[in-house]
Design a protein around this nucleic acid. Structure first.
Lengths: 333, 333
DNA sequence: CGAAACAACGAAAACGGTTTCGTGTTGATA
DNA sequence: TATCAACACGAAACCGTTTTCGTTGTTTCG
């Protein structure tokens, strides 16, 4: 701009206004300035604009893991919507660690972003410490929590109804006449695991069928522990399995097949998260779709709404998406 | 800072220096200022610092698709390394579209980032138009291209040796005595597909076994076209299949099994990209690992090196990573 | 004791824009 | 002809920091 101003012998103010097509400036000058701007391929400096406006047009996304189908679909949803609104997405990975989550938030909270979208790390949910979130909201930075959320922090939230998902899936298994149903899940401190377990138990309780046996295996970590897994499946002759993630479900199917079980004839399997594995498994896996794209889109929508809204009224909402049961070949039709 | 300055009755300059532990400022004042800063939880504004330093500590990553195992591992690699160096990662998705790629680059090139890491969209490789990349490099913004690259642009690049990967995989199939080997790939305008096809052909040529038959199916798009696929496999009684991605490989295995073929006894299968599908397929799929994490890490390393190096000497390097053949159950040991 | 050296700090410019508030020129109106 | 809008533009403050270059007041030394 300085350059153009000098070249055209006008002030920087005039250049600025001319480029914004201000009514203040004569048609003549505007055309000249704009022509020069094109010529010199002038592009306004985003940083300077951000400093002036106190708005960066960046949104920070903090997730535990990116090599995970659900999270990537959420990011895609966020990115797509954010882009239409002129926002960029800064992605940080907490790697399931509380400390990294804190560091990342602090890194971004110093003016780099206009708002956060995040899903809690397992470590954070275990520690149950949300001070870093509270600090951010107290600074007035909008925050949207998705999927792995907490009630300890007041902010917008979006989740799928995990309990309902598990309920519907379990009901599906019951309706097929399954009597010995296993739930393979993770520890309860993860908000989603807890909700899914509740849905599972509720469905069985609602069935009022005393012949139904329920079994629950709580895996210690997010990863696979083969021995726990096989011991559980060896010791219990189940006829249905509901797993809280694809990996558990695929592994269960594989091991059951190894043991000579036919799927779905002998054992029905359902897994949470409708990812690639479910689709391409053999047999393909009936799955509870979490609609990550939609979730991401809505999270971005809620966040940008908050960012751009003038009023400071603190009304927070929690949106609950309905999961969908995608029926495939691992359950009987 | 203004606040602290007023409160302590010193100048803003003094506050700034005190916070940076400048030698100019007395121990006494420094302690006071730093204490106040802690008290008021002062955090420097990154935007202002960026404006002053002309360095944002952000790196822009533009990839065609994020719901793709290889790309997510690359992002993870980038993010991890970048974070250790104090950089944040802004992710943009081109969605395989030339236009979006251009828009994203322009959005970020106006001061939002210090450098780019990107992988070309298929659309861009088809159009063969790289002016947006050239503009960016001419502006002096460092650029590192990975995986899907072009020779049309002078910049740092990093790829895996796709030709070698295909060569090794094909050789593996030949060594097993396979005589009728299929390659299922995509169109040649994708740099990686081309290289893989070359490796495939080279391995067969090198074998000097005239009994070996080679077949190539070029799928029209990135997605699956079932009819083309099945027609090809029905019409050719192959005993080995090499696929340029997991989806093709898994689909091939599934269809072959459907036709009564045993894997690996009757047909050996190998796929590019060692992702989740390969690991959890049944049988598990022998795969060519592309080391996305490593690639991402190195890309970030190269980029940050360029960003932080003082000298303007234009020396660009291309790093070539070696792929690894991960042997699993879809090939004979 | 005067000059030089030094320690401690502040004023102001700079980064690249936006925006408010003038100000000087016109032309129309009373 | 004096008055007043409207018009077209410029000066300067501002966003929050950094940094250069003074400017003080105090030592130190010859």
């Amino acid at each position: 701009m300085k350059h153009i101003a000098k070249e055209l012998d006008v002030s920087i103010s005039t250049v600025s206004k001319a480029l914004k097509n201000s009514e203040e400036i004569s048609r003549d000058t505007k055309e000249k300035v704009q022509a020069f701007a094109k010529l010199y391929n002038y592009k306004p400096n985003n940083i300077a604009i951000s400093l002036k406006n106190k708005r960066t047009k960046n949104i920070g996304v903090i997730i535990p893991d990116i090599v995970h189908h659900f999270f990537t679909t959420v990011i895609r949803g966020i990115e797509k919507f954010a882009n239409t609104k002129g926002y960029n997405v800064i992605v940080c990975l907490s790697d399931e660690s509380f400390d990294k989550e804190v560091i990342n938030m602090e890194m971004l909270a110093n003016g780099s972003i206009d708002g956060f979208i995040m899903s809690l790390s397992s470590d954070t949910q275990l520690k149950n410490d949300y001070n870093h979130l509270k600090e951010v909201t107290e600074q007035g930075i909008p925050l949207v929590l998705f999927d792995r959320i907490t009630n300890e922090v007041e902010c917008d939230k979006i989740i799928i109804d995990d309990q309902l998902g598990a309920y519907v899936a379990t009901k599906k298994l019951l309706d097929q006449g399954r009597k010995k149903i296993a739930l393979i899940t993770t520890q309860d401190y993860l908000s989603v695991s807890k909700a899914r377990t509740e849905g599972f138990l509720k469905a069985i309780a609602d069935s009022e069928d005393n012949a139904v046996e329920k079994l629950i295996l709580k895996m210690p970590s997010m990863g696979m522990d083969e021995s726990l897994f096989t011991t559980f499946l060896d010791g219990n002759d189940v006829d249905a399995v509901l797993c809280v993630n694809e990996i558990f479900a695929i592994s269960a199917m594989r091991y059951l097949k190894l043991k000579g079980k036919r799927i779905p004839e002998d054992v029905s399997c359902i897994g949470f998260t409708d990812g690639l594995l479910s689709k391409y498994a053999n047999p393909s896996l009936t799955a509870i779709a979490q609609h990550g794209d939609e979730m991401g889109k809505m999270a971005a929508e809620m966040l940008i709404e908050k960012i751009e809204s003038e009023n400071e009224e603190e009304t927070y909402i929690t949106k609950i998406l309905e999961p969908t049961l995608i029926e495939r070949d691992s359950t009987i039709n």
